[in-house]
Design a protein around this nucleic acid. Sequence first.
DNA 1: TGATGCGTTCAGAATAGTCTGAACGTACAA
DNA 2: TTGTACGTTCAGACTATTCTGAACGCATCA
Lengths: 174, 174
Amino acid sequence: MTTPTTDTAQQFVEAWGAMGALWGINRSVARVHALLMATEAPLSLDGIAEKLQISKGNASMSLRELRTFGVVRQVEVPGDRRDFYVTEPDVWTMFFRILRERKRREFDPALDAIHQLLEQPGAKGEILGRLKQMSELLTTVEGVVNRFLKDPASSKAALAFVAGLPFNPKPKKR
Amino acid sequence: MTTPTTDTAQQFVEAWGAMGALWGINRSVARVHALLMATEAPLSLDGIAEKLQISKGNASMSLRELRTFGVVRQVEVPGDRRDFYVTEPDVWTMFFRILRERKRREFDPALDAIHQLLEQPGAKGEILGRLKQMSELLTTVEGVVNRFLKDPASSKAALAFVAGLPFNPKPKKR
DNA sequence: TGATGCGTTCAGAATAGTCTGAACGTACAA
DNA sequence: TTGTACGTTCAGACTATTCTGAACGCATCA
């Protein structure tokens, strides 16, 4: 059997599904993704729908979403005219692809809104200062994310480096 | 008038409210937060409810949430027995406080779930490998976030540094 | 040509998330 | 003690999101 039906695989599917919220991904989409991650062989749309107990329609839409993220792709299976799907096997690549898509969908519009507000005159002192700070913060975060997206490989190394370094407290305040 | 009713302030409240999703914060909570950010003077609960056109109950719950994030605190106004609220004025500090709370609420349980799965025997080859990768990724991200939370000041500088550096492409693959 | 197998779409059902407002608790003053 | 002025809670109303499944379009084949 190429599709594991083990407890571990099932638990994994559910855990990943629940975790979807953390990544801003809906439960069905995350479960489809998890199933593909837990399965080496390509799966057909109706195979996925059946295993996860969801409708074909839902499975179809979830797969479309995953393809726009770029973490799932279609493959051909000779002698079968159904579409089959496999997932990007590298978890880090997935991570960066999801990051890119979420940035595009949510972050960029937010940054635009703040910038637009800053451009129009009439902001008073207090709010103007906070708007500027906010803009600075978002722009910084954007810069970091852009850097990551441009070079995932070295970013992964950099992340590991920062994560692994022991904490070195500053001498003293004031 | 210490509470601005300017267009900019209102737009800011709505923009921040819509942006809440990006930070994993609900709209009302984000709007209350934005109103406090846009207002220098402390605001009372019913003042907030009235300005945002939300119920006292909602305002009360939103303020509680903001206090658990640590981005809003109560202040006394002499001669008034109502509770008044002000927001943490520094946007970066806010950012790190929200990061900490979201990590605690969403990230830590997810990491636990993966670790628990890894501990129990019975995972097959393919899925075991992906689980390990996932665990590695989440642990790395956790390390980075922890580092940030331990020393926000230097983290801010580090972020700005990474964001500002021009991209330096690797020589060549292979 | 019609029949079959497949994937997609989308109106409406089901579910999950948010908000309201009445009821309640507390503190204080008379 | 009673009355008043708050803040909080939570059942139920309301709203947004997600999911289903019937209808459809497109290939393929007889």
